[in-house]
Design a protein around this nucleic acid. Structure first.
Lengths: 135, 135
DNA sequence: CATTACTTTTGTAATGGTTTCAATAAACTA
DNA sequence: TAGTTTATTGAAACCATTACAAAAGTAATG
């Protein structure tokens, strides 16, 4: 919890109780959670927490660059505290997201174009995870 | 319209009037449209068209492999008739999607893992397009 | 043709993630 | 402390998508 407090400061985010709790959860649960998963995980020990606060908090984290929002899941927004260059795998059956680390760095290079200016890259893989295979 | 008819058959899709109209639109408007854009474009000349039909049709097209659904836009599902290996650019300001063709083929290679089986890849770039630059 | 079975389309209603907004609470400033 | 700003909260609105059942269209049978 203290770490989360410090961690937020590194991204010039004023660390409130709620923000620290959300960041603490993200740092210790690298599951690319949805808003609802974060809310459900925290509300037992933080009964007054509002889901709107979770939305606001994640928006702020993304804006400050502390967290990356993933477009991989059509149904829900997903968030990743690991802002290093890596890809993701999305299981079309269970909806879980896994990291894909063994990608060559040059895959994350920004392409140049006269039509637009790129500021981020997302490499996503879709398929079925082993837990769902027999299903 | 005749072409669309034939095109659908190549993917073993029974070509109804509605399906041909949707495919015709997709083949002639490579704008990665949303369901609503397709519906709005067709409803003037096809007043009885239901938006549910557009949803059903696109689901079918994707299932048959005639069209690719893109996860790039958090707000709306987007569809691409070009099923060749290429990436996409999403303008965070206007929401338009552009093709990114000049990518090395190996970027679309399927990674191997003990945890999952990949069946598709999506390479997405985010930023601001030139039309929005001055905005 | 006429009947039946099957597929597709349609429109309405429900669902559910996200956003809006105004009120309350907390943190900061002088 | 009073005043000001910032953060949190909860309810309501929004809107893309889904579910579902009725209607229309198409194909098959005799």
């Amino acid at each position: 919890m203290l770490e989360s407090h410090q961690y937020l400061k590194q991204f010039s985010i004023k660390p409130s109780v709620q923000r620290s709790a959300v960041m603490h959860f993200l740092l210790n649960n690298r599951i690319h959670p949805t808003i609802d998963e974060i809310y459900m995980a925290l509300s037992p020990t933080m009964p007054t927490l509002s889901k709107t606060t979770v939305y606001n908090t994640l928006d702020l984290f993304v804006e400050k660059g502390a967290v990356r929002a993933l477009a991989i899941d059509e149904k829900n927004a997903r968030y990743d505290v690991d802002i290093s260059a890596h890809g993701h795998f999305f299981c079309k059956s269970c909806g879980k997201v896994q990291d894909v680390f063994d990608l060559k760095p040059h895959m994350f290079h920004i392409p140049h174009s006269d039509n637009y200016t790129v500021d981020s890259v997302e490499i996503s893989y879709f398929g079925i995870c082993n837990s769902c295979k027999g299903n």
